[in-house]
Nucleic acid binder design. Structure first.
Lengths: 209, 209
DNA sequence: GAATTCAGCGTACAGGTGTTAGCTGATCTT
DNA sequence: AAGATCAGCTAACACCTGTACGCTGAATTC
């Protein structure tokens, strides 16, 4: 709002319909259709503008899609960072992080599905974008494992990679599932991550001795 | 061939064009397009039949897609079973299985991508089908861990689930990658699976004492 | 206050889509 | 040998797609 005032009426309105387009795309994603079978015309229709006006905001649908991927990764990372600050007041970092993650998946199923789907689909550019997001998570995890837990660089990397794979994969399991089942999946994921952590711990000990 | 003789000329020819349709779909999948943006007409064209003749073989494109998913899972499982028989003559089961898996991904990128993609996409029916395939792998792994390695049911389940998640996720990392990088990924995956195994081992010991 | 910018619009086009209906002729059945 | 079956065909349909072109009028700039 504050920022919008300095933006001028024109730019303000433009930003508004840009958001409308993004929201429209997300809405249509929540349905059973994947992003690739989303149509420019339908998105424009739902956003309340003429099909041709779409081009005032994005060069094509792919550009919109990449924007969605970026936004999704960003909000998820912010959420997790907040969660980690919360645990400084006590609590298991594994538990809090995973529960936060699962809550995000439940709240933003459509967009998270986009993330997972485009990881393996469509253009190389899309896959790179998603991979970049996953790398962010991995990097933050590595930092934690090395600095706070004192793991070697190699072991921290190996561990982080495995954990990211497990957690995001578990996120995919939450799609056709109700709340109680989701909690079960979260619980199972927590245990699996602890399994990895324990394995890494054992490996470190074996190397030291 | 032997079976085909007893099938009659008509049914034989029908099976042939059915395969042509399946192959056509796989071919078009190898390109950058996901399954959802595959068209009945184009598939029929590549298979060398009229669009309308498609319906003599599948009720719609989804039915074709489900067939593809089933076939993919089947051949992959056969491959892994063969690999496991080979290791009875010595060799690490983890290494051989994962190397076989990675080789499959390299050889059948298109269809494996379908598997991963439809896991998170399109209709619920598709997701169920893929999930069923993943369950097959998990089940075989559980059996091995419980019977051969003596893990408890719960620990075998937890472990298998984590391993399947890691391995399939690693498969997705192989898409935009050359042979040497693929070998690196395989190596890393092997180490990660060993991490999980070591963690499970440590957990078992802790419980026993 | 005049000139410029530009978000959004309407029209139009060429091409693709899934699907229906009905025909043909080879294969199978009896 | 006669009749039934059925894989594959052509023609046609109603509809949706992305995008090019040029206009309008309000916001912005000078």
């Amino acid at each position: 709002m504050e920022k919008a005032q300095t933006l001028g009426v024109r730019a303000q309105q433009k930003e508004k319909t840009r958001r409308a387009l993004i929201n429209a795309a997300m809405n249509q994603l929540s349905a059973e259709t994947g992003f690739s079978s989303l149509s420019l015309r339908e998105v424009a229709r739902e956003a309340g503008i003429a099909p041709t006006s779409f081009y005032r905001h994005f060069r094509n649908m792919d550009e919109l899609g990449l924007t969605l991927v970026d936004e999704c990764g960003l909000t998820l990372r912010q959420l997790l960072r907040q969660a980690r600050q919360r645990i400084d007041k006590g609590g298991s970092i594994i538990r809090v992080s995973i529960e936060t993650f699962m809550q995000f998946v439940a709240d933003n199923t459509a967009i998270f599905r986009l993330l997972l789907q485009e990881r393996t689909g469509r253009s190389r550019e899309f896959r790179k974008a998603v991979e970049r997001e996953l790398e962010h998570f991995k990097a933050e995890l590595i930092e934690y494992l090395r600095d706070e837990q004192g793991f070697s660089a190699r072991l921290a990397d190996l561990q982080s990679d495995a954990i990211v794979k497990i957690v995001f994969s578990a996120g995919a399991d939450c799609f056709d599932v109700d709340d109680t089942q989701r909690l079960q999946i979260a619980e199972q994921t927590i245990q699996q991550v602890r399994l990895v952590a324990r394995g890494a711990e054992a490996t470190r000990r074996a190397k030291v001795e």
